[in-house]
């Protein structure tokens, strides 16, 4: 590779970045989507993500098996999710505030317990090379796909289908749209939300494991730069549709790659502003698509964020 791609490098970097950076967004947003569909918002997924990253790395290092790490990350997330749900199930407790508390708690515990794992090198997750058809090493590198990404896509499809076509999916949506209706049918709304929050946090934990076990692939305290928080915005952006979450995650990943890619072809001024693209983009889309006159289409009726 004795020549670069020049301007073509930008779209390729954005594509590669989308595939590399999007997975944590995807998992956290699918998790949040599940939780919000049940009528509750969990703003604490940032803490869950960090906890997942730490525990995934720690377990992968101690057992030598990154997949066990992924599983451990999921369970660490699940525990935090249960905590969130139990506290929120108490009457008159505000779920957004508990989320902020969980963010602090999860991050604190992860930093506290994660100290011994900053230095060691844990085995990381393998990649699937999908770019073998191309001669260009750049394209080959951009198309290195992680299994978790594929899993995330499958999960998005599964959730999309399940919300519409399974009894389980309908119960979750009912708890989210009208707690009274769910109660009338004899379901425990708090039970459903507990399950949905726990499940959602499980996914967010896996998103964290992707950060520490694949890309960028190590554990340290600055690992997450707010991906967990952004994912919450992403769900609103995606209108609570799992498939849209997938596209939105790709978009956010690509946007994250834009700043460095532009600098690499020589556009070097204003990099702080380029790096803020995803945030501006989300805000702009929210402003354009929201309306004070009607409910967001697809928004669960019980959700505090949309009321």
């Amino acid at each position: 590779m004795d020549s670069g791609l020049g301007w073509w490098g930008v779209p390729i970097a954005v594509l590669g970045g989308a595939l590399r950076v999007s997975t944590p967004f995807l998992f956290v947003s699918l998790g949040e989507c599940l939780t919000e569909k049940s009528g509750r918002i969990n703003l604490g997924l940032e803490g869950v993500l960090v906890m997942g990253a730490m525990s995934g790395y720690a377990i992968s290092y101690t057992t030598g098996n990154p997949w066990l790490g992924v599983l451990a990350a999921g369970f660490a997330g699940l525990l935090l999710g249960v905590l969130h749900a139990l506290v929120c199930n108490l009457p008159r407790v505000n779920d957004i505030a508990v989320g902020i508390g969980l963010m602090l708690f999860g991050t604190g515990v992860a930093f506290f317990l994660g100290k011994p794992y900053v230095q060691p090198k844990a085995p990381t997750l393998p990649a699937i090379p999908l770019g073998g058809w191309s001669d260009s090493p750049q394209i080959q590198a951009a198309l290195q796909i992680n299994v978790l990404f594929v899993l995330g896509l499958a999960l998005a499809l599964l959730l999309h289908w399940a919300f519409r076509n399974t009894r389980w999916g309908m119960v979750v949506r009912m708890a989210g749209d009208s707690a009274d209706a769910a109660k009338a049918m004899g379901y425990s709304v708090s039970g459903i939300r507990l399950a949905a929050t726990a499940g959602g946090s499980f996914l967010a934990g896996i998103g964290g494991a992707f950060l520490s076990l694949y890309y960028p692939g190590s554990w340290n305290e600055g690992l997450s730069s707010g991906q967990g928080l952004m994912a919450v915005a992403l769900v609103i952006f995606a209108r609570w549709r799992p498939l849209a979450c997938f596209w939105a995650a790709l978009l956010f990943g690509g946007a994250a790659a834009l700043g460095p890619a532009l600098q690499s072809v020589g556009i070097t001024s204003g990099y702080y502003l380029f790096n803020a693209t995803p945030y501006v983009l989300t805000l702009a889309i929210m402003v354009v698509t929201c309306s004070p006159k009607r409910t967001l289409s697809g928004a669960p009726g019980e959700l505090s964020v949309t009321r």
């Binding site: 590779m1 020549s3 020049g6 590669g16 340290n220 994250a256």
Partner: peptide, 17 residues
């Protein structure tokens, strides 16, 4: 300290040769 951005920067530079 921005691990994800640093990794992206490295990938972009490598793509540029």
């Amino acid at each position: 300290l921005l691990p994800v951005k640093e990794a992206e920067a490295a990938n972009s530079l490598i793509d540029q040769g």
